[in-house]
Design a protein around this nucleic acid. Structure first.
Length: 861
DNA sequence: ACGTGTAACTA
DNA sequence: TAGTTACA
């Protein structure tokens, strides 16, 4: 992060030249102010070379971005675990160093050893005396500090600034604006939380969820660049070709396309006059770009789709090439992204690519998709548009239309559903304590890391090193089932094959977070040094858990979970207006992202607070919860037929028996909910593989190959047809009818296939490349072979993230990309097999095999 | 740069 | 058997 000390303090690293915010020309409607009305923090940047912070604040009432610098009294510092006297006595070179300013004792709590340590902050006159190319103070400080202590300095934290929260200023620094807490939320403090610790912690968090979320004025921008060759994306570094069109769509109603007139390119003026945007024509590209900059600086927020990698750097480099001076260009390159001045830049491509956002916030609706059109069609339901022709020769009115559409969709992502996405981002940013620009570009592990660092700093705790955690808490004890994994995970019950009617499905509500909360799991409470009073929570593992103190991760995860379940999920249902309901729903889904990811990070080697015993205790205790609940269900007279991690499928359930099970789980400290009641479930006999029809006719399909993304469309269609028949099943007798219908269907599809009465694209198997082509060294799977063919034939580079559509052919290679194949080349036997595995998963549940089905098929046909 | 467990296919 | 993908 830009504001972390580590960025400029890594050993041996030279201070990078300060990439200045070139703001001088772009102060809008006001200068740096000593008095700022209530405004929200958009970004905080630590300027290493200048030794000051630049805070961008937005005042929605005045529509102004303020810059707030702090230059006064700030000295960068190092922290060492030696007390000041020792430094003065044993390491006098520190004091004599030209960059030395002063030092002071600080007391930090080391959670790993459960004791306080007197340490010293050694202040420098300027950042260059800490880590620059010149001789730095750190060189004369004893080495011990480096292995013990990391990340003590966060400009953001030192200044008490939480991104996305409201502040005002009266000359000296920023003053937080008090947040109003509704009585029904305040009341929850006593009703939901039982200990003072928890109440105090919850009281700290609630303002983050209750502070108002303002409308942030914004503009979406999309540029179109002349391309001499089709399929070739211009290189933004070189910015060799003309910017021919720029669309600007603002939340304030701006709908504008800037077009460059070029000789030989037609324009239908009538079409443009009917368009839903206005058009400005330019004869000079310089003037066009100047107009873009003039617009950008009017907005506190600029939104793009892939702007980091294309639009922004292209604009910047093209502007330089056109003769703009650096300070005239409101585009600023930072280490990991490109931002703007005076506002901030959010690249939605990056945000939607965040796994946790995709999975937990959007429920996987755009799973695996990366493109603007694909995500727009999944989230917004807008149809995809096939691009015809190339930018270079397209009539200007058509070009403008496409250009406008993309910018409009980009803006609309942030506006639909009462600004759901903006609200979500802002709430995530408050929880993670990360500015929007960083948050929207990093994965959930960085969010959780920053959240936990903040909480350590707030308490005056040392942030431990990963190696120290491992050294004192140990590695994992269990063996994973999967080769190459570090510890054992979840239980999956072996389902029988067959059809089961009236199946109740129970769900342990956020099982892993509940386990972490309930059993006090945290890196410092697990295998603590003082074993007195510690308890071994589970016989399977040698790990013990400290009694007397509450673990920081256990506390935080518990608070977030309880606030989510007992306060915000309820408010999302009971709030008086639909707007409030929706807002609380965003709040609870932002919390969900953190809660759900909280277990995984402790098992991730890359996570700075990596602690394998915490991770494996979580899964082991979850296994215990699951298996003991299964036993209890049997005692209560029910028959558990299947379960995976946190779900349990039961036969012979009744309201009373379910109640018994809920009570049992409550004794364990875990909430269990009735998730679904299935009219029937078809189990193929494989784990993670079933089809269920709920009492209201809804179909749930898990893991069946006919439903997987890579299944050819014709297989998916067959599957859909089969599912339609299955939905009609009400009783055992219906099964036999359906059996025959299914067999007829399969026959029909099979003959269509053999007689090639099917289009090629329906046979395409879509598989994504998880690596670049040249990285497939050990093996060359079929989709890679197809990708190589395609790459050669079309002259396009294919790599990580690209999706290859290929068909199986009769030739020696056995595959061809769908673009190069003909229907008569396909290997129908392979497809019949594919069909067979698909259908088998359903058939085996119905109690017969593909061979039998073929037999029945003959009789029917 | 969140985790492990399962299924299916292929070299 | 190991590598690869997609999923729970």
């Amino acid at each position: 992060m830009a504001f972390e000390e580590e960025e400029f303090l890594e050993e041996g690293e030279e201070i990078r030249e300060f990439e200045g915010e070139e703001v001088a020309e772009f102060k809008i409607k006001g200068a740096v102010s000593t008095s700022i009305p209530p405004s929200i923090v958009l970004s905080v940047t630590y300027d290493g070379a200048e030794g000051k912070a630049l805070v961008k604040l937005y005042d929605p009432a005045g529509d102004i971005v303020y810059y707030w610098y702090d230059n006064t009294g700030h000295r960068p510092y190092l922290v060492t675990d030696l007390p000041p006297e020792v430094i003065a006595e044993k390491f006098p070179d520190v004091l004599r160093h030209p960059g030395f300013s002063h030092m002071e004792a600080v007391e930090k709590y080391d959670a790993l050893s459960d004791r306080k340590i007197v340490m010293t902050k050694v202040y420098a006159k300027d950042p260059l005396s800490i880590g620059g190319s010149r001789k730095s103070i750190r060189d004369v400080l004893p080495k011990t500090w480096e292995s013990r202590i990391k990340y003590h300095h966060s400009y953001l934290f030192d200044r008490g600034i939480i991104p996305g929260m409201w502040y005002r200023s009266e000359g000296n620094g920023l003053i937080p604006v008090e947040v109003e807490i509704p009585p029904e939320v305040a009341k929850s403090l006593s009703s939901v939380f039982s200990s003072d610790d928890e109440r105090a912690e919850a009281a700290n968090w609630i303002p983050l969820f209750q502070a108002p979320i303002p409308h942030i004025k914004r503009v979406a921008i999309d540029i179109e660049v002349f391309t001499p060759q089709e399929n070739k994306v211009p290189n933004p570094r070189e910015a060799e070709y003309e910017i021919v069109s720029v669309a600007l769509v603002g939340s304030d109603g701006l709908r504008r396309v800037l077009l460059l007139r070029r000789p030989g390119v037609n324009v239908d003026l009538k079409a443009l006059s009917d368009a839903e945007f206005d058009v400005m024509f330019f004869d000079s590209e310089y003037d066009l770009v100047a107009e873009v900059f003039k617009t950008i600086v009017q907005y506190p927020l600029v939104v793009t789709f892939n702007g980091d990698n294309f639009d922004m750097p292209y604009l910047y480099n093209r502007a330089l090439a056109l003769g703009f001076k650096r300070e005239e260009i409101p585009v600023v390159a930072r280490r990991d992204y490109v931002t703007v001045a005076p506002g901030i830049h959010i690249d939605l491509y990056k945000f939607f690519a965040i796994k946790a956002v995709e999975v937990y916030a959007f429920g996987g609706v755009y799973r695996g998709e990366r493109g603007l059109d694909a995500i727009a069609s999944a989230i917004l339901g807008v149809g995809k548009v096939e691009r015809q022709g190339v930018v270079s020769s397209m009539p200007l009115d058509e070009l403008a239309e496409y250009n406008f559409r993309d910018a409009f969709i980009t803006l609309y992502f942030t506006l639909y559903n009462d600004e759901l996405v903006m609200k979500l981002m802002l709430l995530l940013s408050r929880i993670a304590k990360m500015p929007l620009e960083d948050l929207t570009r990093s994965q959930v592990s960085a969010w959780i890391r920053n959240m936990l660092y903040y909480e350590h700093r707030r308490r005056g705790w040392l942030i431990p090193n990963k190696e120290d955690i491992i050294k004192s808490r140990g590695e994992a004890y269990t063996k994973a089932i999967i080769k190459g994994k570090k510890y054992a995970g979840a239980v999956v019950l072996d389902p029988p094959a067959g059809v089961f009617f009236n199946v109740y499905v129970l769900d342990f509500a956020s099982l892993y977070p509940s386990v972490i909360s309930k059993w006090n799991l945290s890196y410092e409470t697990v295998n603590c040094q003082n074993k007195e009073g510690a308890e071994k929570p589970i016989a399977e593992l040698p790990h013990w858990i400290c009694k007397g103190r509450r673990g920081i991760t256990s506390l935080l995860v518990g608070i977030l979970r309880d606030l989510r379940v007992h306060v915000y999920k309820r408010l999302a249902k009971s709030a008086p207006t639909p707007q409030e309901k929706a807002l609380y729903d965003v709040v609870q889904s932002a919390m969900k992202v953190f809660i759900n990811a909280s277990y995984g990070v402790f098992g991730a080697e890359t996570f700075p607070l990596y602690c394998p015993p915490v991770a494996e205790l979580t899964t082991a205790l979850a296994r215990y919860v699951m298996t003991s609940t299964v036993l209890r269900a049997i005692e209560l007279g029910m028959e558990p037929i299947y379960g995976d991690t946190d779900s349990l499928f039961l036969l012979g359930a009744s309201d009373e028996r379910i109640k018994g099970l809920v009570d049992y789980a409550a004794q364990l400290g875990i909430d269990i909910d009735l998730d679904k009641i299935y009219r029937f479930v078809l189990f193929s006999g494989r784990k993670k593989n079933y089809l269920g029809v709920t009492s209201d006719g809804g179909v749930v399909i898990k893991g069946l190959v006919g439903k997987k993304r890579n299944a050819p469309v014709f297989v998916k269609e067959l599957m859909d047809d089969i599912v339609e028949r299955l939905r009609a099943i009400n009783t055992l007798d219906d099964l036999f009818k359906v059996r025959e219908e299914v067999s007829a269907l399969v026959k029909e599809y099979e003959s269509e296939l053999r007689e090639k009465r099917i289009t090629l694209d329906k046979l395409a198997i879509k598989t994504s490349l998880n690596k670049d082509l040249d990285e497939y060294t050990k093996n060359k799977p079929q989709h890679v072979k197809a990708a190589e063919l395609l790459s050669k034939a079309m002259g396009v580079r294919l790599g990580k993230g690209d999706v290859i559509a290929y068909v199986k052919t009769r030739d020696s290679l056995g595959v061809k990309p769908v673009q190069l194949a003909r229907i008569d080349e396909i290997d129908d036997r392979k497809y019949v097999e594919f069909m067979a595995t698909t259908v088998e998963q359903v058939l085996e549940a119905l109690g017969f095999t593909m061979e039998e089905l073929r037999g029945v098929g003959k009789l029917v046909g």
